[in-house]
Simulated assay, not measured.
Amino acid sequence: MAAQATFKSIKSLVPLFDRVLVQRFKAETKTATGIFLPTSATNSPLPEATVIAVGPGALDRDGKLVPTSVKAGDRVLLPGWGGSPIKVGDEEYHLFKDSEILAKIQE
């Protein structure tokens, strides 16, 4: 697992190349009827996230810039593994390569 980095502000973090900074959706800790769920039921990360920032893209074999396929504000589907965790205050974010993102969620 990658080392966890800590930053004072998420605005100070600008992804490079084809990296995408996301914040995973938080699991509900209480049901609609007010029952609190145990930590073991909410421990696994949810596969959905919001894109916070993206890098400019990566160069292809011909040296042309290929932009990332998502933009800030997009909702995406992530794999259950991977990404580099980044802590900003009490909030946790993750950096993924653009190619690791499974899908963009259309609304």
Score class of each variant (00 low, 15 high):
A2D: 11
A2H: 07
A3K: 12
A3Q: 13
A5R: 07
T6P: 00
F7L: 15
K8V: 13
S9E: 15
I10S: 14
I10A: 12
I10T: 04
K11F: 08
K11T: 15
K11P: 01
S12H: 15
V14H: 13
V14S: 12
P15T: 09
P15A: 08
F17I: 15
F17C: 10
R19Y: 02
R19T: 14
R19S: 13
V20D: 10
Q23L: 04
Q23N: 05
R24V: 03
R24S: 00
F25I: 00
F25R: 10
A27P: 01
A27G: 13
A27I: 04
T29Y: 10
T29K: 12
K30W: 04
T31S: 15
T31A: 09
A32V: 15
A32W: 14
A32L: 08
A32R: 10
A32Q: 11
T33P: 00
I35V: 06
I35M: 10
I35S: 06
I35H: 13
F36Q: 07
L37E: 11
L37R: 10
P38S: 08
P38M: 07
P38F: 07
T39V: 12
S40P: 01
A41F: 06
S44C: 11
P45H: 04
L46S: 08
E48I: 03
A49V: 04
T50Y: 05
T50S: 15
T50K: 08
T50A: 13
A53M: 12
A53D: 14
A53V: 05
G55K: 09
G57W: 02
L59V: 02
L59S: 05
D60H: 11
R61H: 07
R61Q: 06
G63D: 07
K64C: 02
K64Q: 08
L65I: 12
L65R: 15
L65H: 07
V66S: 13
P67L: 02
P67H: 00
S69C: 04
K71S: 06
K71D: 03
K71F: 05
K71N: 02
A72H: 00
A72N: 00
G73M: 00
G73P: 01
D74V: 04
D74W: 01
R75L: 13
R75Y: 06
V76F: 02
L77A: 01
L77I: 02
L78Y: 01
L78K: 01
L78C: 05
P79M: 00
P79D: 01
P79Y: 02
G80D: 03
W81E: 01
W81K: 00
W81T: 00
G82E: 04
G82R: 02
G82S: 07
G82C: 00
G83I: 00
G83H: 01
P85C: 08
I86R: 10
K87E: 14
V88M: 10
G89F: 11
G89A: 04
D90K: 09
Y93T: 07
H94I: 01
L95I: 13
S99T: 07
S99F: 06
S99L: 06
I101V: 15
L102P: 03
L102F: 01
L102T: 03
L102V: 11
A103T: 02
A103E: 14
A103V: 04
A103N: 15
K104L: 04
K104H: 11
I105S: 04
I105R: 09
Q106M: 10
Q106S: 08
Q106T: 12
Q106F: 08
E107Y: 12
E107L: 06
